[in-house]
Design a protein around this nucleic acid. Sequence first.
DNA 1: GGCAAAACTTGCATAATGCAAGTGAAAAAG
DNA 2: CTTTTTCACTTGCATTATGCAAGTTTTGCC
Lengths: 122, 122
Amino acid sequence: MGTQSRSQSLDWRSVCSITTGLDVIGDKWSLLIVRDLIAHGTRTYSEFRDAAEHVSTNILADRLRLLSSLGIIERTNPGAAARNNAYRLTESGAALRPVLEDIGKWSQKYLRPFHAAMVDSV
Amino acid sequence: MGTQSRSQSLDWRSVCSITTGLDVIGDKWSLLIVRDLIAHGTRTYSEFRDAAEHVSTNILADRLRLLSSLGIIERTNPGAAARNNAYRLTESGAALRPVLEDIGKWSQKYLRPFHAAMVDSV
DNA sequence: GGCAAAACTTGCATAATGCAAGTGAAAAAG
DNA sequence: CTTTTTCACTTGCATTATGCAAGTTTTGCC
């Protein structure tokens, strides 16, 4: 029997809006997908896969499915086949930009003592 | 042999500041601890434990240790014994407030179709 | 049609999380 | 001062998620 994936089992821990947000984007990979789409506009599966953080392909596929199902990302060519059919942000996904900016700024200001090699840009 | 905990093994996936931030706060529990401290000022172990989301006690202890080691939270009475020695935010932890506010706003605006019971406040 | 490459799946090892019970120390009660 | 309770964690183990390496299946191109 197969294993349980994030995109198949999304349950809400509480009615708190912050908790609800973290139920969706509170992991190590989802916001990196959003980051790549903010930085590049569109991105294919292979391009996500080849990012510096080296996400494993099953997790990548699972997160793309989850983010799609929640209307955070979508295909650039909705009806067409998967090949060369890049992803892009929806309005919802684009609205995550402030979250990413805040995290980036906070890291640069408070995490550098613990990670000297960190760079200033995205 | 015991299992490996987050607070013992923090390694950085890349030099990206967003990734670095997610290496620390990119999980389902850390920002909820920060949320409780923003909402209440100080909080004891039992108070965190009794929050609506029902964190398990080993994870709670691990996250409190991790956040302390990174200077995000601290004890209100640094030298004293643990009992009744609440936690509070440091300057670093307090600087996470915009992240939480943005996540809350985003959830309320874009996640309600998927979680109707979500409430507007924190 | 044949081929190469892109977009995933699958199987299995490892790590993180969840759950229930236990432990130790300090504060409170007597 | 001794006992009891309570708080702050640990510990052991089951379950779930993640990571890794190898498939498999289209599909665009020649």
